[in-house]
């Protein structure tokens, strides 16, 4: 007697938990042969709202973690992903990816996580400065995370695009709300399970699935989102999101980029999501040495 397979339910990831969408809606992902593979949550405005609340709640503590510790956690994600590689590849194969493409997608995703894991305790050394002002003050500029980042993951890339946008954001102490690829959401949800098992505190990464036409404008116009990142979307879509982002002057980035290329990773992806903070403090000189008399 053949065994009945236990099917996987693909839920969304908010605040370190896997709820179903508030809306109760779903859409069906089909295999290349047109067979239904899974019912994926069709997220709503309310899911965006909940995800932003979770991300905001987690942000302060995540930013305050030692940079070294953030690096360890990012590396841990890479480790866990490596361990579950086959599951990701299988999902991609069922969606019609070739073995080679699927393999590359996941390998590069892991490499990218390792790359940004290494940046966590270094980027601030490179972008900070001590500024030699003309008065008796010690003056320095360092980077701070912008806060909560809204991300539209690259639609054409099931995992690499998502990780390429997400990793530099969280490496820099931001928390994120990610709208996964609409066409390829399975890897995104499975990746959430990896995150869940990787010491990533709940709320640091929140992943929503489903069509963008409701979630993306909601996220782009949300007043408690500090910056917005999209990649490889249409010019019209980008412009409309940019307009959505104006009201609280969100920093807006739209990358037109091939995530498979070597130059699709780098310090500037972290830097884009950092604010420069400059601090002044007087320097006391000894005795009356500086007096003009």
């Amino acid at each position: 007697m053949s065994r009945i397979e236990v099917l996987k339910t693909y839920k969304v990831y908010i605040g370190g938990q896997f709820p179903r969408t508030e809306s109760g809606r779903y859409h069906t992902i089909t295999s290349k042969k047109g067979e239904p593979l899974a019912n994926v949550c069709l997220c709503s405005r309310k899911d965006v709202r909940n995800a932003v609340v979770a991300a905001r709640k987690a942000q302060g503590a995540w930013a305050e973690r030692a940079a070294f510790n953030r690096g360890q956690i990012l590396y841990r994600i890479a480790e866990m992903l490596e361990g579950r590689k086959s599951q990701f590849i299988e999902e991609l194969l069922s969606l019609g990816f070739t073995q080679k493409n699927a393999q590359t997608e996941i390998d590069l995703s892991i490499e990218r996580l390792v790359y940004y894991a290494g940046w966590c305790d270094k980027y601030n050394q490179i972008v900070s400065s001590v500024n030699p002002v003309s008065s008796a003050h010690f003056n320095f500029s360092t980077c701070e995370p912008m806060g909560v980042i809204g991300i539209i993951a690259d639609n054409n890339s099931p995992l690499l695009g998502l990780i390429s946008s997400l990793a530099p954001a969280i490496a820099g102490g931001n928390t994120v709300v990610v709208l996964s690829s609409v066409d390829y959401p399975l890897n995104a949800v499975t990746f959430a399970e990896v995150l869940h098992a990787s010491d990533v505190p709940g709320g640091v990464v929140n992943i929503l699935t489903g069509s963008l036409h409701e979630t993306a404008p909601t996220l782009a116009s949300h007043m408690d989102i500090n910056a917005f990142v999209a990649s490889n979307i249409s010019h019209e879509f980008s412009t409309s999101l940019q307009l959505n982002a104006v009201d609280n002057l969100k920093r807006f980035f739209h990358y037109t980029i091939d995530w498979n290329q070597q130059n699709s990773q780098g310090l500037h992806f972290i830097g884009d999501l950092q604010e420069v903070k400059t601090t002044w403090h007087p320097i006391e000189q000894i005795g009356g040495a500086t007096s003009s008399y």
């Binding site: 400065s129 500024n131 030699p132 002002v133 003309s134 008065s135 003050h137 003056n139 500029s141 912008m146 500090n226 609280n248 002057l249 920093r251 604010e275 420069v276 903070k277 400059t278 601090t279 002044w280 403090h281 007087p282």
Partner: peptide, 25 residues
């Protein structure tokens, strides 16, 4: 974007100036 500790309203060409949130970017 700028925090003055035990001083205020100091400016210098070497010192980056600019804000967070609705103070611009």
């Amino acid at each position: 974007g700028v925090v003055w500790a035990n001083t205020y309203n100091k400016f210098d060409p070497t010192s980056p100036f600019g804000g967070y949130k609705e103070s611009g970017f």
